[in-house]
Design a binder for these strands. Structure first.
Length: 270
DNA sequence: AAATTCTCCTGAAGGC
DNA sequence: TGCCTTCAGGAGAATT
């Protein structure tokens, strides 16, 4: 499931391959994703050159000459650069045919999106109201503490809220809270400054570690070249039902919080 | 108004 | 073996 490290892995891998290539054709086999892919996407993109591949939150922004192709991978999406003779498989919904190959979008569960946003002053509505990037300068413990003033939400829900900070999905939220030794059900408004510092530091650390490992491949994540990531080998609590806590040995506890599976150590995390 | 719940979808896993 | 049920999950939309 692509979280920020996975999306960044894809972006960094594809950008040098894609920039400078021109779209010659777009094939849409399945337009019904989270939102319907606009039917005029092929004629709009035809002939446009790719200027950059950027990322905001978990959105990939394919910068074209006349606007942006907004791409989200949902939870099962992948974006790969393949040769022109590679036939599409099941769930390969969109092909962007380029000068030297095909940029192929696959998404079995179709929670992702592919949208066109013409160049203009306004950012796309889906990009408004997003919180700061977790790997940027704005994401500080002071910011978090201030943002959480009076909040009675569980801290896990708080840090997974994209209006608070973007890109922290379920896997990395579990890991960061464990490393920071904070119980996922603690109310956001009750954390001490020391705890905010630990949490901020560990969110950054776990995301960096994820990027360094090339992402987390649980079922189907692959990067722009079709290769899996390896961060799953470093997961300390996520998905580890009844495993011993790697720190104290106590049995890890699983609980659904905000409709998301959560694992934590009832002894270490307070 | 903040916080929670619903919703889209498919594949994997579990039960019988 | 196979059919049926359950569940996971990003995040915007709807609801409380």
């Amino acid at each position: 499931m692509p979280e920020l490290p996975e999306v960044e892995t894809i972006r960094a891998g594809l950008e040098p391959v894609l920039v400078g290539q021109t779209v010659t054709e777009v094939h849409i086999r399945q337009a019904q994703l989270r939102y319907l892919i606009p039917g005029d996407l092929p004629p709009i993109l035809r002939g446009q050159k790719i200027m950059a591949l950027q990322r905001r939150a978990k959105y990939l922004l394919l910068q074209m000459e006349q606007g942006i192709v907004l791409i989200h991978l949902g939870m099962s999406g992948s974006l790969r650069f393949v040769s022109t003779d590679q036939p599409p498989e099941r769930h390969d919904h969109v092909d962007f045919v380029l000068d030297h190959g095909i940029l192929r979008y696959r998404d079995p569960r179709r929670f992702g999106l592919v949208l066109w946003h013409p160049a203009c002053a306004d950012p796309h509505r889906l990009l408004q109201h997003l919180g700061p990037e977790p790997l940027g300068d704005e994401f500080t413990s002071a910011y978090l503490c201030n943002k959480a003033q009076g909040s009675k939400r569980a801290i896990k829900n708080f840090i997974m809220d994209s209006q608070v900070v973007v890109g922290v999905g379920n896997i990395y939220a579990n890991e960061a809270l464990f490393l920071a030794r904070i119980h996922p059900l603690r109310l956001a408004g009750t954390l001490s400054m020391h705890e905010w510092k630990e949490l901020q530091r560990n969110i950054v650390a776990v995301l960096h570690a994820g990027i360094k490992a090339g992402g987390t491949t649980l079922q189907d994540f692959v990067n722009g070249s079709g290769k899996p990531g390896y961060f799953q080998q470093q997961l300390l609590v996520y998905g580890r039902d009844k495993a011993p806590c790697p720190v104290c040995g106590e049995e890890l506890h699983k609980e659904v919080i905000g409709q998301r599976s959560s694992w934590f150590c009832p002894v270490c995390q307070r």
